[in-house]
C-alpha cells in the first residue's frame, strides 16, 4: 500500500511525465523545445505546464529575447523530490511482478 501511495497523481499523464523528464536533465527548457520534444499542440502543452506549475513542481519565467517573448520552465526542489519518489515507486512496482 505504501508503494502505491508514492505514485504521484500529478505525473499520471504521459505529457506531464515527459515535461518533468526533460526538465530533470536540463537547467531549463523553453516552450518551443518542450513542444518539439513532446510533439504536442500549444494548447495541450500549456494546460499540462499549468497543472505542474499549480502544484509548484515547475517554475515559469517569462522574459524577452530581443523583442520576442520567451517562456522558460525549470524544476523546483519540490518537483525534483516528487519526481524521484515517483520513479522509485514505479521501479518498485515493476520489480514486484
Amino acid at each position: 500500500m505504501s508503494i502505491i501511495n508514492n505514485i504521484n497523481k500529478a505525473f499520471d499523464h504521459r505529457i506531464r511525465l515527459g515535461i518533468m523528464s526533460i526538465l530533470m536533465v536540463n537547467e531549463y527548457a523553453d516552450f518551443k523545445m518542450l513542444k518539439e520534444l513532446l510533439e504536442v499542440t500549444d494548447g495541450n502543452l500549456a494546460s499540462h505546464t499549468k497543472a505542474l506549475e499549480k502544484v509548484e513542481y515547475i517554475k515559469v519565467e517569462k522574459q524577452f529575447i530581443g523583442r520576442k517573448p520567451n517562456t522558460r520552465y525549470s524544476t523546483t526542489k519540490l518537483g525534483e523530490l516528487e519526481f524521484k519518489k515517483h520513479i522509485n515507486a514505479l521501479e518498485k512496482l515493476i520489480n514486484k511482478q
Partner: peptide, 19 residues
Amino acid sequence: SKNYLKDISEIKNLMNKSS
C-alpha cells in the same frame, strides 16, 4: 506493470533526447 515499464522507457528516451 507493462504500462509502468513503458513510462520508464519513455522517461529515459526523453532525458537522452533532450540533453
